[in-house]
Structures are given as C-alpha cells and as structure tokens.
Amino acid sequence: MAFFQIDNLSKSFGGLKAVDQLDFQVQEKEIFSIIGPNGAGKSTIFNCINGLYKPEQGKILFKGNNLIGRRPDQIASAGIARTFQNLELFAHMTTLDNIMLGRHLSMKASIAAVLGLSFKRSKAAKEELQHRRKVEEIIDFLELESARDQFVSNLPYGKQKLVELGRALALEPDLLLLDEPAAGLTQEEREDMVFWIKDIRDLLGITVILIEHNMQMVQNISDRILAINFGKPITTGTPEEVLGHPEVIRAYLGEDITQV
C-alpha cells in the first residue's frame, strides 16, 4: 500500500471542475511535485487533502486511513502539515509564537493547568519550556534567530515564507504539503529553500508534496512529478519524463518550460 494515495478525487465550484477524477500515489520519503498552469487545480488538491474543502467524490488515503470527512485539525493531528500559497501567518504575533503554535498539538496543558504558568515548577511551565527548546531548534535550523522576537508582519517576504515553513515543521509531520514555497523569493532565497526542502526530507525523513511554478527548481528537487491541467492529470513520472512530455509543454503554451 502506498504511503499516501489519492483515488478518483473530484471537487467542483459551481460548474467549474477544479479537480476532476484525479489519482496519484506518493511513496514514503519522496519529494513529489505537482505542476500545472494557473488555475489547474493544484491548490485545490491541497485544500482537499487538509480538509478545508469537501470533495464530491474520491478517497484520500494516508497510511491506509481515509481522510475524507475529517476536519483540518484532525488531519493535522494525523501527521499532515502544510504551507499556503499566499501566506497564512499569524500576522500580529512574533516569529517565536508562530512557530510555537506549530507545537499546539503536542502540548496538552489544560485551562486549569495553564493558570500556573508563571511558576517554574508548574507542569504547564515545564511543558512550555520543553516545547520552546524544540522551537528554538527549528529557528536555528532555518536561521531565523534575527526574526525570533519580531512581529511576522514586519518581516521581509522571504523570511515570512520561512516562518510558515518553520511552523509546519514544528508539527513534526510525516507528510508536508508545500504550496509554492519559492514564489516571490529572490534567486538566492530560492536556492536556500531548495537546500532546506532537501534537508527536510534527508535529515528529518519527512515526505514532501510540492506545488511549484519554477521548473528549474522542480527539476532539481523532485523525485517524481505530476502534471495536471483543468483538474485532470496529464502525466506522472521522473522530472525528465514529465518536463519533456509534449502535452505538458503545450499546457504551458509551448514555452521552454525549464526557463519559465
């Protein structure tokens, strides 16, 4: 059985079929990319996976369990974390708090317990500090020290993207969904991002599904690629197979897509 598998998934808005009877599988510890022109339905797939949208039909199997019908928070606790195409940060909070929120699921202190937070010996304080250490590790890993105590809305765009990645990593997920993590980044920031995504898989052993428009990056980073258009798959395969596929090229208006 595949680590992660989508069967016959469909989601439409009014008359528009955003995702249309889609199937694909992702192996454990794979970096799997989804590409397709604007409006192809890529983000909609993610929104279905993490429970924001209710698909009309199909199955989403994660480690053998169907995720359909579960709420987003339940899907998060099943081990799936994500980032968003247009940043969904907690804008009025600091970097530290944003990433601490990624630990929400692993923290257990009750309302009664947190009232003792200001006492060092309290359970709540101990728990808080333990998770704080974990978060500091993530801040180290993503080199966010200088941003730690700043409100995220004051950070440059590239840093904000990293904070969102950090927040997702704080969940210690088994599957990470990245929706255009490099969009809007400078060349240098993008190279760093590639490096981190590879580390996330290699060092942390997290399976990654990636949506990305930058074909160089996709080619460089992916184990396998799924190309879709109008919510339907065009082809799946290795980067060479997919990026050279005539229909994929046509979907991108015949441009030399490695230069897009």
Binding site: N50, G51, L52, R71, P72, D73, A76, S77, A81, R82, F84, E88, L89, F90, A91, H92, M93, D97, L101, G102, H104, L105, R167, A168, L171
Partner: peptide, 15 residues
C-alpha cells in the same frame, strides 16, 4: 490569537 489572525491556518496546525 491564531484564530483571530487566520482561522484557516489555525485549523491547519491542529487547532
């Protein structure tokens, strides 16, 4: 505060 700033992200991290 997470719910205040983005309910969608809040639910996606497990709230």
């Amino acid at each position: 505060q997470a719910i205040r700033d983005s309910d969608i992200a809040a639910s996606a991290i497990g709230i």
